[in-house]
């Protein structure tokens, strides 16, 4: 299945906080929207205020053969990492890579060999490790961002997709679509800790800001599973309705609100994490097939990448309504949104 991933806003928020006082530090609130355009083999760089496309970064000269999907943002906001593969998820190819893009120049800095048809990617809070979900081989791979060396490769469930690194960098969680599982890896000990059964066809996973909880969307299950990370157990299941089709999800910086893209329903579900229930469903003016979803560093805006309308919907966190629509590239089923600082 087409799959997308967003850079995690909480990581950006952490990164911005950590950079405070440093020379050249990013200023909070100045950011760009990055959209992975699956069929154009490109990344659109969009001004979040005007909606203007500021740049289009080519990922490959072979659109229609090579595609960008999941993205992650380095903690300092200076690098976007993009999972790149061909269109045949069941096999490995030389195209399988994680591409690093400099957000200051919008140029490709380097390519990390990944193998396994990487679908989504996450980065450790210290920026030293990339973790990519390898769909073709049912594995997750860790890569040293400085050297490009493989840190480790671990077996997961079948059709690996979502991946997240805990705020303390210790745990990596990986979803697997057809085994309906999440695999927990200890990134320090470099071993698989456990596999957990979650909702049917899990897509994406995100850690709470304190790392105590993780949330997993399940597209067919119509649920979000809540994992107690320390206990390594699913402790709650939030129902969005069997017809909700949740895919990508992200938290606001406080962790109090969880936003979930309803890819098959052209809606965004808003969950109050304290109450563990849906408090709002945003449908009016939404683009079609919202798949990727990201939150601005301050939490004021939510962006969705709409695969069937090749657009980005801009949602206000105050009104929980769609404020604007921005044009993106030709993404059809797999566009994504990233948010980084604009120095």
């Amino acid at each position: 299945m087409p799959a997308l991933r967003m850079p995690r806003p909480r990581m950006l928020a952490l990164g911005l906080a950590a950079l405070a006082g440093m020379a050249g530090a990013a200023e909070a609130g100045a950011h760009r929207i990055y959209v992975a355009n699956e069929y154009d083999a490109s990344i659109s760089v969009i001004d979040p205020e005007s909606g203007e496309t500021l740049d289009t970064i080519g990922i490959s000269g072979r659109p229609g053969e090579v595609r960008p999907r999941g993205m992650a943002v380095s903690p300092d906001g200076r690098t976007i990492y993009v999972a790149v593969s061909d269109f045949l998820p069941g096999r490995q190819s030389p195209e399988d890579a994680i591409v690093a893009i400099d957000t200051a120049t919008n140029r490709v800095l380097r390519r990390y060999r990944a193998g396994g048809n990487p679908e989504r990617v996450a980065i450790s809070p210290d920026g030293t490790q990339l973790w990519a979900a390898l769909e073709a081989t049912a594995q997750v791979v860790g890569i040293d961002t400085a050297t490009g060396a493989e840190i480790g490769k671990f077996q997961t469930g079948v059709e690996t997709e979502g991946v997240a690194v805990s705020p303390d960098g210790r745990h990596v969680l990986v979803t697997a679509e057809t085994s309906h599982t999440v695999t927990m890896v200890d990134a320090r000990a470099r071993k698989v800790l456990t596999h957990l059964l979650v909702g049917n066809r899990p897509r994406d996973v995100v850690f709470s800001p304190d790392g105590a909880r993780a949330y997993v969307s399940a597209e067919i299950g119509g649920t979000v599973s809540v994992i107690d990370v320390a206990a390594r157990k699913v402790v709650d299941t939030i129902s969005l309705g069997l017809d909700s089709r949740p895919v990508e999800l992200n938290l606001d910086p406080s962790g109090g609100r969880l936003y979930v893209a309803g890819g098959g329903t052209s809606a965004v579900y808003v969950i109050d994490t304290a109450r563990a229930e849906v408090v709002e469903v945003i449908r009016e003016r939404m683009g079609r097939r919202p798949w990727g979803l990201s939150v601005s560093p301050g939490g004021e805006r939510i962006y969705t990448a709409n695969g069937l309308s090749d657009s980005v919907s801009v949602i206000g966190a105050d009104c929980l309504c769609v404020l604007d629509q921005f044009a993106a590239g030709r993404g059809a089923h797999s566009v994504e949104v990233g948010v980084v600082d604009a120095r």
């Binding site: 299945m1 087409p2 069929y39 269109f87 998820p89 597209e219 089709r245 098959g264 089923h333």
Partner: peptide, 13 residues
């Protein structure tokens, strides 16, 4: 044919 996942991407919804 370009994307092998495209039919499923329509069939699922």
């Amino acid at each position: 044919a370009v994307n092998p996942e495209e039919a499923e991407g329509i069939a699922q919804p």
